[in-house]
Simulated scan of single mutants.
Amino acid sequence: MILLNTNFNLPSTSGKNVSLDDYKGKYLVLYFYPKDNTSGCTLEANQFSENYSEFKKAGAEIVGISKDSIASHNRFKEKENIPFELLSDTEREVHNNFEVLKPAKMYGKDVIKTVRSTFIFDKEGNLIKEYRDVKARDHALEVLEFIKSL
């Protein structure tokens, strides 16, 4: 687990830019997902949403991040009633820092794909756990169990 720069400063659906420091004093679940309003990403967001109160009780905050725009995120949040912030990384800088991009083929074309990944930070902002290339189904429950074990 070698990450050169885990800090971030990105626009959020709150209308403000947020950074890792904004979450000090809480555990932070930072999850990267490929695209708003797609089946796997909707499933994952819904499972994090359904368990949001349990994460909060355990002292954790959840933040989703993708390459989509804030306008897209706001539509996704409203449609799916997502209670936590979504961050927009259209320049892919934070995606690159966390090494969650990989080349892939889609419909015969070369593309750069987001690898569904989750990073857990402790209350001081230190990275303590990472999940890479996860499946959307039940991933939120696995993360919740880890948070509850802290």
Rank of each mutant, 00 (worst) to 15 (best):
R75D: 08
G40P: 03
F48Y: 11
D122W: 00
G40D: 11
D138S: 14
S14D: 12
R116C: 04
P103R: 09
V115K: 02
K105P: 00
L87D: 01
Y107Q: 07
L141N: 13
L101S: 08
G64Y: 09
M106N: 15
R92V: 05
E54K: 14
M1P: 15
H95Y: 05
D110T: 14
S88A: 15
T6Q: 12
M1D: 12
D89W: 04
N37H: 07
P11E: 03
A45F: 07
A104F: 06
N5R: 12
K148W: 09
N46H: 09
P11T: 02
V100P: 00
N74H: 02
F84I: 08
T118V: 08
I65H: 05
S149F: 09
S49C: 02
E54I: 00
A58P: 13
Y23P: 10
F55L: 08
T6L: 05
N97V: 02
Y131F: 15
R116T: 05
R132V: 10
V18S: 02
L30H: 11
T6G: 09
S14I: 03
I2L: 13
R116Y: 04
K135S: 15
K123G: 03
V100E: 06
A58H: 12
L87P: 01
E80T: 02
K77A: 14
L87V: 10
T90K: 12
Y131H: 13
K26V: 02
T118I: 05
E78R: 13
I70N: 10
R137N: 14
D21L: 07
T118F: 03
F76Q: 11
N97I: 03
A71E: 14
K35H: 06
L30S: 03
S149N: 13
T38F: 08
R132Y: 05
G64N: 09
H95S: 13
E124H: 06
T90H: 01
K148S: 10
F119S: 05
N96P: 00
K113V: 01
G15L: 10
L10F: 06
I82D: 00
C41W: 02
G25S: 07
A45Y: 03
D133L: 04
E78T: 15
F76R: 05
D89T: 06
K79P: 09
L28H: 04
S149D: 08
F55Y: 14
A136V: 14
Y27S: 07
K67V: 04
L127S: 13
F76M: 10
F121R: 01
I112E: 15
N74W: 00
H73A: 07
Q47C: 09
N51Y: 01
Y33L: 06
S72E: 04
V94N: 01
G40Q: 10
K113S: 11
L28T: 00
I62H: 12
N51R: 09
P83G: 03
S69G: 05
L3H: 15
N51F: 00
T114N: 04
D89M: 07
L127H: 13
K79C: 04
M1G: 15
T13S: 15
T118Y: 07
H139F: 07
N17I: 01
S149W: 09
N97H: 13
R132K: 15
F121K: 05
G125W: 00
D110A: 12
G59E: 07
H95K: 09
S88D: 05
L4K: 15
F98V: 05
P83M: 01
L28V: 01
K56S: 13
G125D: 04
S88R: 04
V100K: 11
K24F: 03
E130Y: 14
R92H: 10
F55E: 06
N5P: 07
F98K: 08
